[in-house]
Computed example of a mutant assay.
Amino acid sequence: MNKFTLIACIAIAMLSSCTAQKSNENLTESGLNPAKFDTIIDGTKAVKLYTLKNENGMEVCVTNFGGRIVSIMVPDKAGKMQDVVLGFDNVADYINVPSDFGASIGRYANRINKGIIVIDNDSIQLPQNNFGHCLHGGPKGWQYQVYEAKQINDQTLELTMNSADGDQNFPGNVVAKVTYKLTPDNSIDISYSATTDKKTVINMTNHSYFNLSGDASTLSTDNKLFVNSDSITPIDSTCMTSGEMMAVKNTPFDFSTERAISEKIGDTTCEQIKNGNGYDHNWVLKDKGNINVLAAKLTSPKSGITLQVYTNEPGIQVYTGNFLDGTVKGKKGIVYQQRAAVCLETQHYPDSPNKPQWPSVILEPGKTYTSHCIYKFSVEK
């Protein structure tokens, strides 16, 4: 090798090193490459990855495709930063692989019986995409649509959904907003609002899949769970509520005292466990409507990471990832197995449009729908 060839090789090596270093500098704390989220949908709707950070080093990444939380980096009991939610590392997978990972769900979170709502004596047929029911707003709910995004500052992201009259056959032109705010106490403060020009139904939530161990290849059933509730809204074999309330005392659903999810999730002598294939139920919160009272708490004994949930909603859906089946590959190439995560979805009760005895989900013109959820992270050592 002559000296000119040697010099050329050194130059190429240095250039490659600089390029790799620059590429690494562009990655988020969770290892995401924002370039993999840049795309245009329907010719005009820009999709990007947005990053929120606070003074403690906590990081939350959100894509405006579906208003989805993609990653949450929080410290564990050893002080090491861990990503505690499931998801994908590129927007193509969010578009092409059916999932609700991290999504801002609308118009109606959870299920509507047989996809039928009646408004002012007018019966409206919605899509039937889950056991004959309408789930999470239908197969093209807001989790599969593009929110307009405005990053207010390093800690705040505002997302806006302009949902046309007839979107998934729901009535009314609706303008909905989701605001993510990362606070100094390591909380993700989520505020929802919506207005309409025609009477409609609204029930929004966040559908993050939490694996608080930071290792999504492991199950989350060892997590300890507390729910501030004395009852659930029981379901049938199609996961549809009956309109009744069921006391949780002396059942596998009693988490009024913190205990491991694994303790009774396999108790198939319980009809409700069989119907949900585990836990996939709405808990009726004792202090419904009080944002200052703890609604639920989830703790990983492995990492020490704790998630506290506060809400002004009357209910919370606890879903233990029962329908994850090892066919979906997420971030870092990890295959998501059954019960690899726990979802804590603050909400009005499932099928409330058809249960007049429950808190109303009707939104009328001139009124504003609001909902509030706080996910607060800390460590138990």
Results as ranks from 00 to 15, higher is better:
K3F: 10
L6A: 05
L6N: 02
M14V: 14
M14A: 10
N24W: 14
E29C: 10
D38G: 01
D38P: 05
L52W: 15
K53S: 04
K53I: 09
E55C: 14
E55D: 05
G57W: 06
V60E: 04
I72D: 02
V74D: 13
P75H: 02
D76T: 08
D76R: 05
K77M: 01
L86H: 06
L86M: 08
L86Y: 05
D89N: 11
A92Y: 03
D93A: 14
P98G: 05
D100R: 13
I105P: 13
R107Q: 12
A109Y: 06
R111G: 12
G115T: 06
I116A: 03
I116H: 10
I119T: 00
N121H: 15
D122Y: 04
S123Y: 02
S123P: 11
I124R: 02
Q128C: 13
N129M: 00
N130I: 13
N130T: 15
F131L: 14
G132H: 07
H136W: 08
G137I: 05
K140Y: 06
G141L: 04
V146P: 15
E148C: 11
A149G: 00
A149E: 00
L157T: 11
M161A: 09
N162C: 08
N173G: 13
N173L: 07
K177A: 05
V178S: 00
Y180M: 11
K181I: 01
K181N: 07
D185S: 06
I188T: 15
D189R: 11
I190D: 04
Y192M: 02
Y192R: 07
T196C: 05
K198E: 00
S208Q: 14
S217Y: 11
N228P: 01
D230P: 08
G243Q: 11
M245F: 09
K249T: 10
N250C: 12
F253V: 06
I261H: 04
I261E: 02
S262E: 07
E263Y: 08
K264Y: 15
D267T: 10
C270L: 00
Q272A: 07
I273K: 13
G276E: 01
N277E: 02
G278Q: 11
W283P: 07
K286C: 03
K286H: 10
I291P: 05
S303G: 07
I305T: 09
T306Y: 01
L307T: 07
Q308H: 15
V309R: 12
E313Y: 08
G315K: 13
G315I: 10
Y319V: 01
Y319W: 08
T320F: 07
L324T: 00
D325K: 10
D325W: 10
K331F: 01
Q337K: 05
Q337V: 02
R339S: 08
S360L: 04
I362D: 09
G366I: 07
Y369W: 08
T370G: 03
S371V: 06
H372F: 01
